[in-house]
C-alpha cells in the first residue's frame, strides 16, 4: 500500500513540522502538511490519506478553552462549494480504516469533537485546566496498558515523553464513564511513578491531576488515539533531558528517540491491515 500521512495545521498549531518528521521517520511513504484553510477551500481531502496527525499548538489561542474554537470550526466551518464538511470527510476516512493521532492540542480537539473515547460526535469527556492552574513543560514517565486495543501503543511498556500544556486534566461526564474507560482499556497511557511502576495522581509525576493518571485515550477500534505528551518531541536521543548523563560514553547505536515507536506501531498496523 501507499501509506499517506496528513498533518493538519493552521490557525495556531505549531508542532506540524516535527510531527511530519516523526511520521516520516516511522516509515510513511508520503507526508503532507496541510492548512485547515486549504482543507476548507477543497485543495485536498482527509479521506485521500490513511494516517491523520492532529499536531499540538494553540488552536485559536485556546481562547475559549483548549481547542474549543478549533473544534467549533471543524463542526461548523463551511467548506467551499462542492466539498464535503470536515466531519463527513473524517467519517469516510475512519470507515475506510484510517488511523488518527491527536497530540496535546490535537487530543483536546478529538475529545471536544466527540471522537474519543468513541466516535459519537458528541463530547462525553473533556480536557481542562491542570489542577495547579499553570502551563508546564516537564518530562513524565508513562506506562502502557498492554490490554488496550490502541494500535499506537501495542508492545510498549514504559516510556518518557515531555508534556507541555495547561489543560490536560481529563474530566468525564460521570464516574461510570470513567470506570468504563479504564475497564475497556481505552486509556492506553498513564502517568506513572517510576519508583513504584503504578499509575499516579500525584504532582508532578502526574502533571495535571488527571484521574487514574490517564494521559491518553483511544476508541474501541484502537485507531483513534489522543495523548497529552508529545511523542514527536522525542525523535532523537538528544531530545531526552538526561541524554548527557545516560550516554556519557558516546551516542547509542540506535539514535532514534522512543517517541517514534508510537508512530511506527501505527504505520506497521496500517501495512498489516491494508496490505
Amino acid at each position: 500500500m501507499n501509506l499517506r500521512a496528513l498533518v493538519l495545521c493552521g490557525n495556531g498549531t505549531n508542532c506540524e513540522v516535527e510531527t511530519a518528521h516523526a511520521v516520516r521517520t516511522a516509515g510513511a511513504d508520503e507526508v503532507k502538511i496541510l492548512s485547515v484553510w486549504e482543507l476548507l477551500a477543497g485543495h485536498d481531502t482527509i479521506d485521500a490519506y490513511n494516517f491523520l496527525c492532529l499536531p499540538g499548538g494553540f488552536l485559536d489561542g485556546d481562547h475559549l478553552g483548549s481547542a474549543r474554537a478549533g473544534a467549533f470550526r471543524f463542526a461548523h466551518g463551511k467548506p467551499d462549494a462542492g466539498r464535503d464538511p470536515i466531519r463527513v470527510q473524517l467519517d469516510r476516512f475512519l470507515d475506510a480504516g484510517g488511523v488518527i493521532i491527536g497530540i496535546c492540542n490535537g487530543f483536546q480537539l478529538l475529545v471536544k469533537l466527540g471522537l474519543l473515547p468513541s466516535r459519537t460526535w458528541e463530547p462525553r469527556v473533556t480536557l481542562t485546566h491542570n489542577l495547579n492552574g499553570r502551563f508546564e513543560d516537564r518530562w513524565v514517565t508513562l506506562i502502557a496498558d498492554p490490554e488496550s486495543p490502541c494500535v499506537f501503543t501495542s508492545g510498549l511498556q514504559t516510556l518518557e515523553l515531555p508534556i507541555r500544556h495547561g489543560e490536560g486534566r481529563l474530566v468525564a461526564t460521570n464516574d461510570a464513564l470513567l470506570k468504563t474507560i479504564l475497564k475497556d482499556h481505552l486509556a492506553p497511557l498513564k502517568y506513572v511513578d517510576p519508583a513504584t511502576g503504578l499509575p499516579t495522581e500525584v504532582y508532578p509525576l502526574n502533571p495535571n491531576g488527571s484521574p487514574g493518571g490517564i494521559a491518553a485515550l483511544c476508541d474501541p477500534t484502537g485507531r483513534i488515539f489522543g495523548l497529552m505528551p508529545h511523542p514527536e518531541a522525542f525523535s532523537h536521543y538528544t531530545n531526552h533531558p538526561r541524554w548527557t548523563r545516560e550516554f556519557l560514553d558516546g551516542a547509542p547505536e540506535n539514535q532514534e528517540g522512543t517517541g517514534i515507536l508510537l508512530f511506527r506501531n501505527a504505520v506497521d498496523w496500517l501495512r498489516r491491515n491494508h496490505g
Partner: peptide, 13 residues
C-alpha cells in the same frame, strides 16, 4: 522556566 515551552519544534538539545 517550567512555564515556558522550551522544546516545541523538537530541536532543543
Amino acid at each position: 522556566v517550567r512555564q515556558y515551552d522550551h522544546e516545541v519544534k523538537g530541536r532543543t538539545v
